[in-house]
Amino acid sequence: MSDTYSNFRELQLHEQEDRDYRIKVSQNWHQVLVVAPHGGNIEPYTSEIAQWIAKGDFAWYLFEGIRDIEVRKLHITSHNFDEPTLLQALHEAYIVLTIHGLKNLAEEYLMIGGLDTVLATLFRRELQNRGFTVKDCEQKYRGERATNICNRGRTGKGVQLEISYALRSRIVEDAECRNRFVDAIRSVIKAQELR
């Protein structure tokens, strides 16, 4: 399904902030930025997962659909997503991780994309070691365009996690699963920060 709006300015002309969507950001920018560009009702639970990963240690940014009907209209594909607050945050970030949602209701898995293949491999290994299923990335989820928001930080490369709805639900509902998932991601990021 193609997007209704090709960029943020177009969306802004037709949708109203705090009625249709909202933008939430952490108080301070940081060299690590965790982003949920399709949060709220667009791709449910991606906002919560992004904030759990960031905690108080990393910067976070959420673009959330807050209406109940036709919320899919608020989805802007990652390589077209150009909301100014996010672009400013990306200028500060060396590590960019974006959290996305796949529609799969039955299977608990994720796919990892983005141009930072080293970091993606580390995430994959750590998540698999902790019992999560990581599938090979389908073409449309690879996040290989330079304009994809995960690749627009200071290094020009980042990582995106595409998480099935079934796994997102489990992360939200099951504290043990959530802790395992969040700790896996955070441990990899923390190790990179120390380098």
Score class of each variant (00 low, 15 high):
Leu105Ile: 03
Glu144Lys: 03
Arg154Leu: 15
Ile189Phe: 00
Thr77Ser: 15
Ile49Trp: 05
Asp116Thr: 08
Lys135Gly: 03
Ser47Ile: 04
Glu173Val: 01
Leu127Lys: 06
Lys157Val: 03
Tyr109Phe: 15
Ile66Tyr: 08
Phe58Ala: 07
Glu64Leu: 06
Leu97Trp: 00
Leu97Val: 13
Ile69Phe: 13
Ile149Asn: 04
Leu161Lys: 01
Asp174Gly: 03
Ala146Leu: 14
Arg170Glu: 10
Gln192Gly: 08
Tyr141Met: 02
Ile112Cys: 05
Gly153Phe: 09
Val35His: 07
Phe63Lys: 09
Lys140Gly: 07
Leu115Pro: 00
Gln160Leu: 10
Leu74Trp: 01
Pro44Glu: 10
Ala175Lys: 10
Tyr165Gln: 03
Val134Trp: 06
Glu126Arg: 11
Asp20Thr: 04
Gly131Tyr: 10
Arg168Pro: 04
Leu62Gly: 06
Gly131His: 09
His38Thr: 02
Arg154Pro: 07
Gln31Asn: 12
Gln88Gly: 00
Cys150Leu: 05
Met1His: 12
Val134Asp: 00
Thr98His: 02
Asp57Trp: 08
Val182Arg: 00
Leu97Lys: 02
Leu122Phe: 13
Ser169Phe: 00
Leu105Phe: 01
Ala191Ser: 15
Pro84Gly: 05
Asp136Pro: 05
Pro37Asn: 15
Gln51His: 06
Asn129Asp: 12
Tyr109Cys: 01
Ala106Met: 04
Glu64Lys: 03
Thr133Lys: 11
Trp52Arg: 12
Glu10Asp: 15
Glu17Pro: 03
Glu15Gln: 14
Trp29Ala: 10
Gln139Asp: 14
Lys73Thr: 08
Ala146Asp: 12
Ala106Gln: 12
His91Asp: 08
Ala120Gly: 11
Ala59Thr: 02
Ala120Cys: 03
Gly113Pro: 05
Ala54Met: 07
Asp3Met: 12
Phe8Pro: 06
Glu92Thr: 12
Ala59Phe: 04
Tyr109His: 11
Ala175Pro: 01
Tyr109Met: 08
Thr4Leu: 10
Phe132Ser: 03
Trp60Tyr: 15
Trp29Val: 06
